[in-house]
Simulated scan of single mutants.
Amino acid sequence: MADALVLAGIHHITAVTARAPENLRFCTRVLGLRLVKKTVNQDDVSAYHLFCADRVGTPGTEVTFFDWPHLPPHQPGHGEIARMALRVGSRQALDWWLAWLDGHGVPGLERGSYAGRDALFFTDFEGQRLALVDDGGVPGGVPWERSPVPPEYQVKGIFAVTLVVRALEPTARVLVDVLGFRLRAEGRGTSRSALFETGSGGPGALVLVEERPDLPRAQLGAGGVHHVAFRVPDDATHRAWREQIAQAGIPVTPQIDRFYFRSLYFREPGGVLYELATDGPGFAVDEDVEHLGEKLSLPPFLEPRRAEIEAHLRPLEPVEAENR
């Protein structure tokens, strides 16, 4: 692994919803995130791609959703991203969140430990598995002044993701030998697990891998996670990463211009889809920061199809109006 190529951490996590209006309400009115970009899945323009994040859409704070109402519920198993863990700043924040989520009828609330830190586990209304983790006060995202969550308790970004795979070693080899992650800790309980970190490590740069050969293959559906994206600083480094992944014998897409960032995709041996995404240009490239997410944004190559695309999208306006 060349020393010059280092992933800074997690860029975003993209999950699947079959109920976009309710999903948006949960992200913004319960989790307190800001809708920073309302766009479409560029590979399936019939579906929204909703980006919720901190006030300005900082890489590493983005939780995004594809809206696929035709999909059945997600079936957990191996070969999946089983949980997204988000950051809060203190144990006191977890206490606040426990009361807040309970007051909103959020299911599955349970205190526990995640990657050695205090955590609160829960699911959303579609069974999406989530955790809030005390990050020890490490600086995070920019608070959103119109969030229903007080600034001191707001979600600060992504803490980690949990992968569940059939066999740990092949996934670990790609993380370490190809992507430059470091093994931070190993666990042996009812199943083997390993915690890996990249960049400077710590919150936002962690991947927890659990080995579960006893489980069936996961079937992606509503309430599941589609992929995790890792941070790359610029286009030149992005191209270098693509070359390195290809040289390792892993099938990888060409660099794709998503307008808000550049992307490339590949599957690791356990079946989980990875993306490498550049930090820029960012979400303010076509909207003022004060008005992020207020209208449907389309990249230039889709703009000529705006009328057609808008005609096939379900309205989100009642939910959006609550967030302005």
Rank of each mutant, 00 (worst) to 15 (best):
V209S: 10
E210S: 09
E210G: 03
E211D: 11
E211Y: 14
E211Q: 15
E211S: 10
R212Y: 12
R212M: 07
R212A: 14
R212S: 11
P213N: 12
P213W: 15
P213L: 13
D214S: 14
D214M: 09
D214W: 12
D214K: 11
L215S: 11
L215W: 15
P216G: 11
P216R: 11
P216M: 12
R217M: 12
R217E: 15
A218S: 15
Q219S: 13
Q219N: 08
Q219L: 14
Q219M: 10
Q219W: 10
L220D: 05
L220T: 08
G221C: 10
G221D: 08
A222D: 07
G223R: 07
G223K: 06
G223I: 07
G224K: 05
V225F: 13
V225M: 12
H226Q: 14
H226K: 09
H226I: 01
H226N: 14
H226E: 09
H227W: 05
H227Y: 06
H227S: 06
V228L: 11
V228R: 05
A229T: 03
A229V: 04
A229D: 04
F230N: 00
F230W: 15
R231V: 03
R231N: 02
R231L: 08
R231W: 00
R231D: 02
V232F: 06
P233A: 12
P233V: 05
P233R: 13
D234V: 02
D234E: 14
D234H: 15
D235M: 09
D235A: 15
D235N: 04
D235W: 10
A236E: 15
A236R: 14
A236Y: 10
T237R: 13
T237S: 14
H238S: 10
H238A: 15
H238W: 07
R239Y: 11
R239P: 00
W241S: 03
W241T: 01
R242H: 06
E243P: 00
E243Q: 14
E243S: 11
Q244T: 07
Q244L: 13
Q244A: 14
I245E: 01
I245R: 03
Q247E: 13
Q247K: 13
A248D: 01
A248G: 02
A248T: 05
A248C: 02
A248N: 02
A248H: 03
G249M: 02
G249S: 02
G249N: 01
I250T: 00
I250Y: 01
I250S: 02
I250R: 02
I250H: 02
P251S: 02
V252N: 00
V252T: 06
V252Y: 01
T253Q: 03
T253F: 06
T253L: 05
P254D: 14
I256P: 00
I256H: 03
I256G: 00
I256V: 12
D257S: 04
D257A: 06
R258S: 02
R258T: 01
F259N: 06
Y260H: 08
Y260A: 09
Y260R: 03
